[in-house]
Amino acid sequence: MKRLSIVLALILFTGVLFAQDHSGKTLPEVAVKTITGESFNTADIDNDGKPIIVSFWALWCHPCIKELTTIADVYEDWQEETGVKLYAISIDDARSTAKVGPLVNGKGWEYEVLLDQNGDFKRAMNVNMIPHTFVLDGDKNIVWQHTSFAEGAELDLIEIVEKVANGEDISGH
């Protein structure tokens, strides 16, 4: 019976979530590391009033690497069009710290890469599954987020970023 009631509460709640918009939320302040081992406060994620993409990934997550590789192919165009900056947050644990750099460089990614070794940023952002991607507007409000990746999903992402860059309303998404 307990089980049924929990399922019931969650299903009701899912309905609320589907209907809700994500306006007005900002990034939490959490300490993460850069690839070179320096401390970095997530409040310092910034792009001079232009849109920001924050994407959570890990070395073992194939869809994540697919997503970031797909975006890497068009990243230059995106930056030219919208001025967007992508922060790739690796949630790999300590053993992989030294491997993130080689993968990022090996793949030729131009992103800002941060290491969230103990998942503090992940938890503060309520990330359950990766890939999980956030779009922030010029005032660093979280305006859109999405989990999972499939070929073509990057098209939706750039559509959102373009609208944000132009100051359009995206509440329909």
């Binding site: 929990i6 399922v7 019931l8 509460a9 969650l10 009701l12 709640f13 609320v16 979530l17 809700q20 918009d21 306006s23 007005g24 939320k25 900002t26 952002m125 309520n126 990330v127 359950n128």
Partner: peptide
């Protein structure tokens, strides 16, 4: 459910500077 609902409504309030922000996640 009511508590969760109230929280999300608060989260949607227009002035997060005053009332704060609520965020969360769940999985089943």
């Amino acid at each position: 459910f009511a508590i969760l609902f109230a929280f999300t409504q608060m989260a949607n309030a227009q002035s997060p500077q005053k009332y704060g922000q609520v965020s969360g996640s769940f999985q089943l």
